[in-house]
């Protein structure tokens, strides 16, 4: 390619800004994470840890640290899978909660609990993942049949599909006296997270890292099939692979933590609004922001009625719902 005008690579000031932003977010997340370890009914101070007081140390290791790990893993993962789904479906309002994914996962959990009551958590998780995959695939099939894939119609279809699946889950739960369990799965809560009960979330962390490796392919698939194929990307494999990854992550989070509404919707939108849709660029900040969002909501849920707790899903629902409303109104004004 011998071209007449030539200039060398220009300095990328945008990349420096990105790194600074990510660094700032990471520092804040670390600080608030550290602080959160010392919030709780049992008063644990740094000095207790330094003196290695055994009962407090035990509480710290068995409850506080696992809780923090669960928050960070599920928050970052749910932010990232929301981002991926929005890119792949090419719709800013698609997330595990608006694509039938989360509802299908909880239906799977109900069924697994009814038929394999004594099964291990791992088996129940597997059933939930299979259901989440099927629910997401059904959503994709419905959307692909749409003649007019409007930005609002697509998530509406997902929400309706989710509603139907949720109704089936509620019916079964009612029949088999599982309503309480179902409401725990649909409303996320970190208070029950203990050592031995959250480790499945490391799988979610691994999948989030895997997603980063495929970030460029997700971006290209988000530009449409023609652009992706032109650049040699296997479009269908990326589309279905990415959606499967998202469904799996969402299902595992439902099993361990429960539903975290709006997270996958609000956090990626806030990040891409300022940084654009290049997933390789925005994915790290989305992960950190998702973790931060959940952590902040969890701290509120732990302190607002101290010494009692309210489920984090409720706090997230209120905060996220407000942010979501603001986003929708903003996109109305900026439509085009």
């Amino acid at each position: 390619m011998a071209m007449s005008t030539h200039s060398g690579p220009r300095p990328a000031s945008g990349r420096i800004r990105d790194t600074a932003l990510l660094g700032l977010a990471l520092v804040s997340l670390t600080a608030v994470s550290a602080w959160s370890l010392f919030i709780g009914v049992s008063d644990i101070g740094l000095s207790d840890l330094l003196r290695a007081e055994s009962s407090k140390m035990l509480l710290f290791v068995v409850s506080r640290v696992p809780r923090l790990a669960a928050i960070l893993l599920s928050g970052s993962a749910m932010g990232v899978v929301g981002l991926i789904m929005q890119s792949l479906v090419r719709n800013r309002f698609v997330a595990p909660t608006t694509a039938g994914t989360v509802d299908a996962a909880s239906l799977g959990l109900v069924i697994a609990t009814i038929w394999f009551a004594s099964a291990s958590v791992f088996l129940k998780m597997t059933v939930a993942v299979v259901f989440a995959l099927a629910g997401t695939a059904l959503f994709m099939a419905l959307v692909q049949r749409l003649r007019y894939a409007d930005i609002i119609v697509v998530p509406l279809i997902g929400i309706m599909l989710g509603g139907v699946i949720q109704a089936a889950a509620t019916f079964l739960a009612l029949r088999y006296d599982l309503l309480q369990s179902l409401s725990a799965w649909t409303n996320g809560d970190f208070s029950g997270i203990l050592r031995g009960r959250y480790e499945l979330l490391y799988l979610v962390g691994a999948l989030t890292a895997l997603a980063y490796l495929f970030a460029n392919r997700f971006t290209l698939a988000g530009m449409g099939r023609d652009v992706a194929v032109n650049l040699g990307v296997n479009y269908l494999r990326v589309l279905y692979g990415g959606m499967a990854l998202a469904a799996t992550v969402a299902a595992v989070v439902v099993v361990v933590v429960g539903g975290i509404p709006f997270l996958g919707l609000v956090v990626p939108n806030l990040v891409t609004m300022t940084m654009g849709d290049n997933l390789r660029r925005v994915l790290p900040l989305t992960a950190v922001s998702g973790a931060f969002f959940v952590l902040a909501c969890d701290i509120v849920s732990r302190t607002i009625r101290f010494p009692y707790e309210i489920p984090v899903g409720t706090v997230v629902g209120v905060v996220g719902g407000g942010l979501f409303l603001a986003l929708v109104l903003r996109s109305r004004f900026n439509a085009g």
């Binding site: 945008g14 090419r90 971006t219 988000g222 530009m223 449409g224 023609d226 652009v227 194929v229 032109n230 650049l231 040699g232 990307v233 296997n234 891409t272 654009g276 849709d277 290049n278 660029r281």
Partner: peptide, 25 residues
């Protein structure tokens, strides 16, 4: 497909994508 991507390129007419990438990206 990735071998062909180094041999031929195709640009279709529907490029009104709403993807927020910069020109350089």
């Amino acid at each position: 497909s990735d071998v062909l991507a180094r041999k031929l390129s195709i640009l279709r007419q529907e490029n009104q994508v709403a993807v927020r990438l910069t020109v350089r990206e």
